[in-house]
Amino acid sequence: MDWQAFRVSLSLGLWTVALLVPVGMWAGHVLATRTFRGKAILEAAVAIPLLLPPTVLGFYLLTVFSPRSTLGALFERAAGASLAFSFPGLVLASVFINLPFVIQPIQRAFEAIPADVRDAAACCGLSPWQRFLRIEVPLAWPGTLTAMILTFAHTLGEFGVVLMVGGNLPGETRTLSIAIYDRMQAFDDHSAGIMAAVLLVVAVATLMTTTALTERLVKRRG
């Protein structure tokens, strides 16, 4: 069992969720409540990571992360290290590929709030910001929770993009799923089996938690 890889996977998952939830809340809310030119195109763009092969995604991400690109150069000047094949780069890649997993469920959750409820909140004297925090976010919470858990689970399991963008640096970019692949290549079926079982347990636990939490929320609201 590669505990170091387990730690990398865990912190990658947590960082991804932490960075994506505010982004998803904002984007999901905008997409759910406003109409603007180019909205359909934007919605399609959000779904791109779902459709592209991980290698293609990885290729483009590496291109953007390279010190020859603006983003890569900026990061290197600020951090003194390359974005490619680094943990921050991995987090950034993970945030990007998980965009649809976060934005879409949150958008649906915001869309499910009846227009009258929003209007009633406005007529109660709540400012747009207060409406968002006190009414919309709590009502969209089940959808948001699903998005968070899905993203976390998806990040733990991601393989292709991680391998392309992060490589296989122990303690930096070697996640559990990469470690499994690594062990299999070395004919170490035993270690690979243990790690696979750990991921399986995490996946099942995630699913059960989501179901239980959602059920409780739904029961409370009728």
Binding site: A121, A122, C123
Partner: peptide, 20 residues
């Protein structure tokens, strides 16, 4: 004046209560 700064008491057809 945006709706939240108008002092109206609005009763909606389907109540529009905050379910949470």
């Amino acid at each position: 004046v945006p709706p939240h700064r108008r002092h109206v008491g609005f009763v909606f057809q389907d109540y529009a209560l905050f379910p949470h």
